[in-house]
Write a protein that binds this DNA or RNA. Structure first.
Lengths: 105, 105
DNA sequence: AATCTATTTGACTAACTTTGTCAAGTTAAT
DNA sequence: ATTAACTTGACAAAGTTAGTCAAATAGATT
């Protein structure tokens, strides 16, 4: 999986590869086709539950898709921030620190 | 600034160092003391605007405090995710990719 | 060119989350 | 035991996100 593709691009490509219509997939997700269309064009965010279902429906690796989804949410959080990439690095360092603490107890 | 402190810890320490009361600072922020108390104990998140005001009130470096704040929001986004640190790394890679694209145009 | 099917768009509503107030409860110093 | 500072929890208001629906567009097919 190419991590530089948006989750929408990944979903649309795989859906088309499988010859499925928006209507087929959105029915399984139990949402209107409009939303799925928007998710595929990155106009809306999916929920975590939808991502997990989509991995099943489209035979995509759940963990990979989830990582892609989470990374996109992270990027969304800092998209308009000039200090975004600094914040990302600090978040990683803090994450390590927290994990170290937790592994001690 | 120690990046492994929570934003709440940083704010409380500096406020106490300056001998200010919750009531003094919360008045300047135009919120109830209850909220500031919760922010300092990490029971609530501050807004970006509050963080910027707090930097002024407490003489903290705005960019440093903002990075700390943003990193905490990022961590919040993945706090319950076992794939969180993988997602963080992928977010950084994607960030680089996006910046590369943008610098070309 | 008319029709049919898939997708997109935009206005609107519903559900949820976040941000806040307020009043009562603790804590600790005097 | 009072007083001042802070904390707690129930609740309301504001804002955001997730959804529906109907109409519009795009592209094949007859």
């Amino acid at each position: 999986m190419n991590i530089n593709k948006t989750i929408g691009e990944i979903l649309r490509e795989k859906r088309e590869e499988k010859g499925l219509l928006l209507r087929h997939v959105s029915a399984k997700l139990d949402i209107d086709t409009a939303i799925l269309s928007k998710i595929e064009r990155s106009e809306r965010k999916a929920t975590k539950e939808q991502i997990l279902k989509l991995a099943e429906i489209l035979d995509l690796n759940k963990d990979d898709l989830l990582v892609q989804y989470l990374s996109e949410r992270i990027l969304y959080e800092i998209k308009d921030e000039k200090l975004g990439s600094k914040a990302l690095k600090v978040a990683e360092q803090r994450m390590k620190y927290i994990n170290k603490l937790n592994s001690r107890n």
